[in-house]
Amino acid sequence: MEDFNWLQLLNPEFYILLEFGGIKIGLLVVLFIVFAETGLLAGFFLPGDSLLFLAGIYSESLMSQISLGNDFLNVTVFALLVTVMGILGNMAGYWFGARSGNYLYNQKDTFFFKKKYLYQSKEFFEKYGSRAIVFARFLPIVRTFAPVIAGIVSMDKKKFMFFNILGSFLWSFSMIFAGHYLHALFLDKFNIDLKHYIEYIVIGIVGFTTIPVLWKLFKKRVHLE
């Protein structure tokens, strides 16, 4: 840890390759981050989508200690573990929203909490209804507060769980399988190792997932002016 730089915390690869005492703990860290994004309301600065895509690329390393001896099974089990943590995180967010009521709307902004993100998520939830729980999984910031909003407005628990499970499943499997098999495809067909282009991949994914949110905010500001 002598060469540690705080900027590494913004790099998904840092979490994936993390070791403690010579033991790889990347898998545990990835699972914790997936839970924390919604369960601990810490999603606005954690590398969600890019983390899962890169985790798919590094899935062999992440699953090395509990390998099932089959590539497809390893990736599938890994995606299922991420799905479960995503579901639990959303459940924690929903519970917090149901318990807190309008408490969050009366809180001051901190580094870990921005009230504007709560309002943006509320607008998103009102626009898409129950489906927002699925869509939010693919949008930074919104996915952090969507389950909280669902709890605040007392969304039907059964309906919430259905969309929670569906959204977590689609998000986890699409991101992880895309990373894993695109890496294999590029390596096999073009002899290109995507691990050498991690920075570009992260920038591309962050841009792709945040542009819709930024565009919506831009249009809203223009409309108000």
Score class of each variant (00 low, 15 high):
Thr83Trp: 01
Phe145Leu: 12
Ala132Thr: 08
Val77Glu: 10
His196Leu: 12
Glu2Thr: 14
Leu17Thr: 11
Leu139Thr: 03
Val222Ala: 13
Leu52Pro: 10
Ser121Thr: 06
Thr144Phe: 12
Gln107Arg: 14
Ser64Gln: 14
Val77Pro: 04
Phe44Gln: 10
Pro212His: 05
Val153Ile: 12
Glu123His: 07
Ile33Lys: 08
Tyr200Pro: 00
Ser61His: 12
Lys114Tyr: 00
Ser174Cys: 04
Lys158Pro: 06
Asp109Ala: 05
Gly22Arg: 00
Leu27Phe: 06
Phe163Arg: 00
Ala136Glu: 09
Leu88Lys: 01
Phe135Gln: 07
Phe4Ser: 13
Glu60Cys: 10
Thr83Asn: 03
Val142Ala: 09
Phe186Asn: 01
Glu60Gln: 10
Ile152Cys: 11
Ile165Phe: 14
Glu126Thr: 06
Lys115Arg: 15
Lys127Arg: 15
Phe190Val: 09
Glu60Ala: 11
Ala55Phe: 12
Ile141Leu: 06
Gly179Pro: 02
Gly129Pro: 01
Trp6Tyr: 13
Met63Lys: 10
Thr110His: 08
Asp193Thr: 06
Asn106Val: 07
Met175Ser: 09
Phe53Ala: 12
Phe96Asn: 05
Phe160Cys: 08
Val153Cys: 08
His183Met: 11
Leu27Lys: 04
Ile23Pro: 07
Leu166Glu: 03
Ile87Tyr: 06
His183Ser: 15
Leu182Met: 02
Leu54Ile: 13
Ile57Val: 14
Phe72Lys: 06
Lys24Met: 07
Leu31Trp: 02
Leu224Asn: 03
Phe111Tyr: 15
Val77Leu: 15
Phe186Trp: 05
Gly21Val: 07
Thr209Leu: 06
Lys195Asn: 14
